[in-house]
Simulated scan of single mutants.
Amino acid sequence: MAVFLALRCLPTLWRNFGGFSPSEIHVATDSQVALSWLISGTIVSRNLFARNRLKDIQQMSAELEATLGFSPSFRYVSTTENPADLITRGLTLKRFKACLQFWCTGRDWLSSGIRPWAAQLLPCLSQHSQVVARSSWNAAILQGEEPPTVLPLERFSSFTKLLRVPSLVLRFIHRLRRLEVYTERLAAILLMKTMQRQRYAEELAFLRDSSGRTILGLVRDLDLFIDGEGLIMSGSRIARSLHFDPEVKHPVLLAKDNPVTRLIIRDAHTRCQHLGVESTLAELRRCGYWVAKRRPAVKTVLASCALCRKYNARQVLPPPQCGHLACFTC
């Protein structure tokens, strides 16, 4: 609700300050749960009020982007940095007089240009959301609007080699910002999110807003949902089991006819020592992937495996030796 009120007040503040043109807008909150909702664009809750407020925030962010050319960035600050908590949590008059300067002007970093969110601990957020919350990326990237990949996916022979290029780029960017993150996982998330937006745009729109709409067949059959990192995940009958890892219980949905999916299948086929279709499917599930129409997709990739074709080819034997044939003369 606080973020909603902050965005609602922004146009009024902009007009009262003479219509200046800011270069960036940061909206800070002391709620890590609310920040995760803002970054992923989804709410893992049945609270209708919270869902409606998130839609309003996204709409107001779009209006600000149309007016100013950029959307606000959402950040996290500790509750000790929030002057509003002085009143809401209650304090004595003596304590309030001691904190009067903090109540009137806030912390010094508001006017000094220091960004305190770069060093904040965010255990409630996913790794990708932590990177976004600490960096200077725009909020449009948070909503999953990053541009489509420019990598020639067909030129890579393995999923590991494909991850190497964006990982090096992300590692260079994060070193400039003095951030330590697992860039390979972040690169894989960005590639899969791009693929899902291209192949499952209708399912993604339904999962973000399903009010008054008929449930889609794929969403119903696979029990799809959006996780905290913005990926479309699949539920299963073993989701309530305590004996499986989270990636096994809720695998990532992959499109069968995408170059990234083919590289992932080829990588799983290599790791299971070039065994058959069933072993490759089991390895995919163990690694946390669910391919739509998975069996035909795996068969197509295995049919192009040069090593399997070499050792599975039938050996051509010479014809059996025949006895001496009689010579016929005319």
Rank of each mutant, 00 (worst) to 15 (best):
L35G: 02
A119I: 08
Y311P: 03
A292P: 07
Q273G: 07
L222I: 14
L38K: 01
C308D: 07
L170P: 03
R175W: 10
S167D: 01
R185M: 13
W14P: 01
L91N: 11
T80P: 04
R115D: 12
Q321N: 09
A34C: 07
G217F: 15
I57P: 02
E184I: 02
D257I: 00
D227V: 00
E24Q: 11
L163H: 00
E278W: 02
A2H: 00
K256I: 11
P116G: 05
V277A: 03
A119F: 05
E65Y: 10
E184Y: 09
E24C: 08
T29I: 00
W103D: 08
D85R: 05
Q59P: 01
V277H: 01
P152Y: 02
D257N: 10
T67N: 14
C287T: 15
N82L: 06
G106D: 05
F206I: 04
V301F: 12
L263G: 00
S23R: 09
A201P: 03
I43S: 11
G235H: 01
R178P: 05
G217A: 15
N138G: 15
P259Y: 01
H269K: 06
T42I: 04
F96E: 00
A50L: 14
A187W: 02
L253W: 06
L142V: 12
G106V: 07
L153G: 01
R15F: 08
Y311N: 09
V77I: 13
L153M: 01
R164T: 06
L168P: 03
D30N: 04
W137D: 14
N258L: 10
H243D: 14
T280Y: 00
Q315W: 06
F328I: 15
G144M: 07
E247M: 09
V27D: 00
L207H: 08
R266K: 14
V3F: 04
L151C: 05
D56P: 02
T183C: 15
S71N: 03
F328Y: 11
L35I: 06
P72E: 03
K161R: 09
K161L: 13
M195S: 12
S211G: 10
G288S: 02
F70P: 05
T79A: 15
V291G: 03
L168Q: 13
E180I: 09
T183S: 11
I264H: 01
G230Y: 01
A205P: 00
W14D: 08
L10D: 02
P166Q: 04
V252D: 03
R286F: 14
R177S: 12
F70V: 03
A118H: 13
L242M: 12
